[in-house]
Design a protein around this nucleic acid. Structure first.
Ligand SMILES: [Mg+2]
Ligand SMILES: [Mg+2]
Ligand SMILES: [Mg+2]
Lengths: 178, 178, 178
DNA sequence: GGTTGAGAACATTTAAATGGCAACCTC
DNA sequence: CGAGGTTGCCATTTAAATGTTCTCAAC
């Protein structure tokens, strides 16, 4: 299999898992007041669900969520993508975007962890973006450009990516990957 | 009145307002999973209550909460302390500390806003610390060293205060002011 | 001395300082792609040089550059113009214009830009325009209509001008608008 | 005198928005 | 061509934890 197909398969499978999570539970009871940001709670929800939904999966194995209380953990989910005796480690970073706000440029991880990951022989850091809106009692996952979930690899991030003084990669939440 | 007494009166009155808020509503329905940080939601709650509780107040007037959606606003609450025809503007910054966590060193505002405030002829930036713990359905405000609320002025902050690369003042949440 | 002459002298002296800066270093190693803007970098360069070049100066004293990171700072450089025991505070704002970009038009376009800003409530005293072009390794300062530097003297800063707690400039204001 | 442990002090990382400004686009 | 609005790009600020390093005291 070509590398390109292989990578596309990973992305497609990740999208599918998270789409299923959203499909089974399209709203959460996490309250969102206007202008409030609840990324932390949404991420924890998706992390746990991801692990649950990949307990038995055609491609993903050994998924773990970011450990409780580890507020500086380098991944939200770690999982392995397995195909034809090849086993690829993935670090997933969820981004939860409130589409009622004007714009967003989330911190996207320290660049240092890219090195950590590569030194351990792996490569793939993946962002998974989800979109939401507050309602009276909590929040709904919603579509952006007709999709609920957008996954892409750090290696494909837009060239407008930059490093902030806090040593975080940063890229606009609506910027297309390459 | 001496400056010292005057300042002590401000602090005592601030503590009293927030103690009353907590007394009337000692728990919130904001869910706190272990290791999660819900400072944003707690701050918004306290901001609105502070405004409500100082609508008619012996000392505080014209309180306003941080405007909705302004995620970069320099204060959580702005209020005026009035006594003997003297009117003092205060900028309040709430800090919500989860006592189940090991430690905390919250970002405490950009140092640049100190100059902004001074240029406009004012001086008093106040931190108001509250403590909480998650429970099954939400959170309880709790005591730390037998107090629910600790207020102090930026000018009295511990000398261990430092500036982070993100241009935020930082100080340990349990550090005593001078 | 007439006001008009006085103002012309200030402008002439400002132009001279910046012309000297450009003369001593006619190119920078700041990379410029077409359509990109590097105003920030050029401004920082000119600010520091301006302070350096007016350390000992016939007319300018006590020059300071804008504090690092303060985007809301009302000036790029603050300096004092001294003549005959008269001391005038000047706030300088640099504008860097890439002549390769589509909008650039000599003479009339640029002053309009400046007036627009002024009408929208900005209050800078002097704008100093410099022109540049990208090259292979960085950028060159260039002439526009045979001049390297163009300064516009806008209007006096009223003594009632101040920065409000909401971080806005205000003239003749009484209460803080939010 | 060196080692260990504890505590203090500080650095780093995590959650995601708004705000500013030059360049571009449209009429 | 000019005016006005929009877009793209980046900087800054906001929510609060853990983790590392240094210092000092006790053994
Ligand atoms: Mg994440
Ligand atoms: Mg606060
Ligand atoms: Mg400028």
């Amino acid at each position: 299999m070509e590398i390109k197909e292989y990578e596309e398969l990973i992305i497609a499978q990740l999208n599918k898992v998270v789409e299923q999570i959203i499909d089974k539970g399209p709203n959460l009871t996490i309250a969102v007041k206007k202008g409030e940001r609840v990324g932390d709670g949404i991420s924890k929800y998706l992390e746990n669900k991801f692990v649950e939904f990949t307990k038995k999966h055609e491609y993903f194995t050994d998924s773990i969520a970011s450990p409780e209380g580890k507020t500086k953990n380098p991944f939200d989910v770690q999982t392995f993508f397995e195909i034809n005796n090849h086993r690829e480690l993935l670090w997933v970073d969820f981004k939860a975007i409130n589409v009622d706000n004007d714009d967003t440029n989330p911190d996207s991880g320290t660049p240092d962890k890219v090195l950590t990951l590569m030194n351990s022989g792996y490569f793939y850091l993946v962002y998974i973006l989800v979109y939401y809106k507050g309602n009276e009692t909590g929040l709904d996952f919603v579509q952006n450009n007709e999709i609920f979930v957008k996954s892409y690899f750090l290696k494909d991030v837009s060239s407008t990516m930059r490093i902030t003084p806090a040593n975080q990669m940063q890229v606009n939440g609506f910027e297309e990957p390459m």
